[in-house]
Amino acid sequence: MAKYITKRVIYMFLSLFLIASFTFVLMKLLPGSPLASASKLSVEQREVVYEKYGLNDPIPVQYVRYMGNLAKGDFGVSFQYKNADVTTLIVKKLKYSAILGAQALIFGTLIGIILGMIAALKQNTVWDYGSTIIAILGISIPSFVFAVLLQYVFAVWLEVLPVGLWEGWKSSILPSIALAMGPIAIAARFIRTEMIEVLSSDYILLAKAKGANWFEIAFKHAFRNALIPLITVLGPVAAGLLTGSLVVEQIFAIPGIGQQFVKSISSNDFAVIMGTTMFFSVFLIVIILIVDILYGVIDPRIRLSGGSK
């Protein structure tokens, strides 16, 4: 297991290193750079700015400094907002995005598990079809279409929930639902397939042969075995939530990282774009690593066999 974790951590750093180098090259190539408005500056002012950002140093020196800063958690300085460093910006906005993401993840997964269980236990009944339809819609309908629909129905038409902005927890309901569709759909489909497979396995037959009743079969024997592998889809689910948050926060005007990111795209604030991108990468890669390790810890088959697959 320790060997496996070490290997995974090394790959994680390699991936991050690659992304970081790539963003550095982009920063150097992009036309906008910090000096998008440079023409308005005098030569002296320009020198001051160059000096301040260290742009006079040779490229390798800049590269090493950039990587060093990243390692310290410094994602650079915004060009748009005077001297606001990206890390502070992210930390300031993180709260809202985290609330939405956590709500969507927790409720979405729970509802998905329930739907998937119902579908598997009542296979080929109305319940199964209903739950399958919800799952297909959840996977198929893009989050922004769904978010706009929710906003139009509940905020504009029925006027029962806020249209947007952050005015307390109520504001988080619609965007959380919009984001939760993905986790609901993925969890429901996954649990359904897993449950059906587990229910047809030999050990369920043996449990039946022992005289276990329906409830014991479903929850004591099958559920645990179907639930454990669900951890593996948490990585893709997190990636989906992140992608979704960009548009959903935009649509509901939630002052989170996603909205900040989309804004920085339209204002060509490359430092924020790159910084946030780096932040996203670290976030997702660490999540996937944690998920994989967690899976190994929870599943006894993997836990004790020393991580060999």
């Binding site: 790959y11 390699l14 991936s15 990468s281 997702l284 996937i288």
Partner: peptide
Amino acid sequence: VLIGIPTLV
């Protein structure tokens, strides 16, 4: 190494 890079990014 490549698979670690999120599609979005």
